[in-house]
Amino acid sequence: MNGITFAGKQLKTFNVLAHAHEDWELIYCTGGAGEILWQNEKTAYTEGDALVIPPHLLHCNYSNKGFTNVHIRIENDCTLVADGVTKVSDDADRHIRTCFEAAFFHFNGDADKRAVLLSAYGNLIVSYLAAFRGRSVLSAVTEKIKADIVKNFPSADYKLDAFLHSLPFNYDYLRKLFKRETGITPHEYLTAMRMQTAEKLLSCDTPYNVSEIAALCGFDEPLYFSRIFKKTHGVSPLHYAKRLR
């Protein structure tokens, strides 16, 4: 989840001394312009820009004419990924700003509702950053899905849908994002991993029969395994093995 741990505002300010945080820091410039200085780099920003700053990154903020902002800190979540300061520009309707302002309001509002609302707005802000920046902010999500599939595909009990629903993003959005970044859906990637493993086992001299290979590739039904293999390769597993040996 993307829980917000702090939300604040800066009125017209010219300098913020060098500092770092345990959590991700997200800054939305509501007025003016300036520069974030970090690791001998400079990231210029102006009104309507959001800045994503990783945990433990020492940085300072400088402006000749002054700036105002809303800034939040968010729990270190794998859906945010960056080696340095990243800038994301808001759209004309200022959707990101609306979320930052709401997060600030609720952080300082009703304590009984705060946790749920801040979690919701944290997820929404990260989603907007992903949508407006493109694949780079959420590439870690795709990598997380791929890693989970690689880890679990040999198990017939693996439930990919359950894992996707556990992530703090819309299920359909994740499927579309994954396909945009990899060219295939998560379920197609799962099938591809299982079929690639089956190919390797069938291509070499192994002691396993088709039923055992099916089990090693995450299928509890050999007939279903054979049907999927033939659909993707044009021949049955037995014919595939005989052709290569």
Rank of each mutant, 00 (worst) to 15 (best):
R73S: 14
N76K: 05
V85A: 07
E212S: 08
T185F: 11
A111V: 11
F107W: 09
L17I: 08
D83R: 01
Y128F: 15
L223R: 13
R97I: 01
S203H: 05
G109C: 14
N76M: 12
H19F: 02
A120D: 11
A131E: 11
C217V: 05
R243F: 05
D93G: 14
P237Y: 04
L201S: 08
S127D: 10
I72K: 02
T197R: 10
N170H: 12
L160G: 07
A103L: 10
S226C: 08
Y240I: 01
D83E: 05
P237T: 00
S155C: 11
T79D: 08
F107N: 04
S155Q: 12
I145L: 06
A192T: 07
E199K: 00
G183T: 08
T197C: 09
K113N: 07
G218N: 00
F107D: 07
F219E: 00
E143C: 13
H71F: 14
I228Q: 12
W24K: 01
N64T: 12
W38Q: 02
T13C: 05
F105G: 13
T98W: 04
D83K: 02
F67V: 06
R175C: 15
W38L: 12
D112L: 13
H233G: 02
A7K: 08
Y62F: 13
R133C: 12
R114M: 09
S136E: 04
R175V: 07
L57A: 02
G31A: 12
G32E: 05
Q10W: 09
Y189R: 03
N2E: 00
R135A: 13
F14R: 15
G48T: 10
L51M: 10
I184A: 13
F163R: 06
Y240L: 07
V88Y: 00
G34Y: 04
K12T: 13
K230T: 01
C217P: 14
A241M: 04
N15H: 15
E47N: 00
A44S: 04
K159H: 10
D220Y: 08
S89L: 03
A192R: 12
S89R: 10
I149D: 00
A131T: 07
G31Q: 09
D110A: 14
Y158T: 15
T46N: 12
F14G: 07
S236P: 04
A44C: 13
L244M: 14
L129Q: 08
N152M: 09
L129A: 06
G66P: 10
A214N: 09
A120S: 06
N108D: 05
S127K: 11
R194P: 10
V85K: 01
V141D: 03
F6R: 02
N76Y: 02
D172W: 15
T30C: 15
L138E: 05
A44L: 05
G32T: 11
L164G: 06
E41P: 09
D93W: 00
R97K: 13
S155N: 00
E22R: 11
L80I: 01
D112S: 14
D220A: 15
F107I: 05
G218F: 08
S226D: 09
R94T: 06
F153V: 06
R114C: 10
Q196N: 07
L124T: 12
T43L: 13
P54Y: 01
S89K: 01
L57S: 00
Y62A: 13
A103K: 02
P54I: 03
N152P: 03
H19R: 08
I27S: 02
E35C: 05
R180F: 15
A20G: 06
F132D: 12
E199V: 03
D77K: 04
F178W: 09
A20W: 09
